Simulated assay, not measured.
Amino acid sequence: MNMKVKRIDGQGRIVIPKKWRGKWGDEVILIELEDRIEILPKRKPKLSEFFDIIEVDEVKEDVEKELCNEIIYECE
């Protein structure tokens, strides 16, 4: 684990080492917790990770219409 101690400047900025920015990107998420602040990299999800997680038996032509009809039927 790498650790750095950094000062916050008068404008509230922290400089993240260039090597870390290259690895993690240039956008972060700040999370305020009771006892600390966490800085997490903001990453775009890899959509390929979500492929094949849902199995579908059959895809019908008008899926949206069918789902709406099912919702209406269940509410009656």
Results as ranks from 00 to 15, higher is better:
V59Y: 14
M3C: 04
M3V: 04
E58T: 08
L40F: 00
N69E: 15
I8W: 03
G10N: 05
R36K: 13
D57V: 02
D35S: 07
M3F: 06
L30I: 15
I39K: 01
E70D: 12
E61A: 13
E76Q: 12
V28A: 13
L33H: 06
K6Q: 09
R7A: 08
D57E: 14
D62W: 00
V5S: 06
E32L: 14
I8Q: 01
V56A: 07
V59R: 14
C75A: 14
L47S: 12
V5T: 10
I54W: 03
E55L: 02
P17Q: 03
D9E: 06
E76F: 07
R13C: 12
E76L: 15
E58N: 11
V56G: 05
K42M: 06
S48K: 09
V63A: 12
S48W: 00
R7Y: 11
E32C: 00
V5L: 07
D9W: 08
D35T: 05
V5W: 01
P45G: 02
I29K: 15
I37V: 15
R13M: 12
E49V: 00
D62R: 10
C68Y: 14
K44F: 04
E32T: 06
D62Q: 04
G25A: 13
E27D: 03
I37E: 02
L30A: 08
R13V: 09
C75V: 14
G10R: 10
E76M: 10
D26W: 02
G25L: 10
Q11E: 08
I16R: 04
L30T: 07
E76R: 09
E27N: 08
D35N: 11
Y73K: 15
D9S: 06
K65R: 12
G10K: 11
E74H: 09
K65E: 14
K18L: 01
N69F: 07
E76H: 03
K18C: 02
E74G: 02
W24P: 02
E49W: 09
V59E: 11
K18W: 00
P45K: 11
F51D: 13
W20A: 05
E66K: 10
I71W: 02
W20L: 13
K42P: 03
V59N: 10
G22M: 07
V59F: 15
R7D: 10
I71G: 09
I72R: 14
V5G: 00
D57P: 01
S48F: 01
L47R: 12
I37M: 11
C68R: 14
I54C: 03
I37K: 07
G22E: 14
L67A: 15
F50W: 00
R21F: 05
L30E: 08
I14C: 04
I29H: 09
E49R: 07
D62E: 07
R13K: 12
Y73I: 04
I16C: 06
K23G: 00
E58V: 03
G22Q: 08
W20P: 00
N69K: 15
D57K: 12
D52G: 09
I53V: 11
P45A: 01
D57N: 14
G10Y: 09
Q11Y: 08
G12L: 03
G10F: 01
I53K: 13
E70N: 08
M3D: 03
N2Q: 08
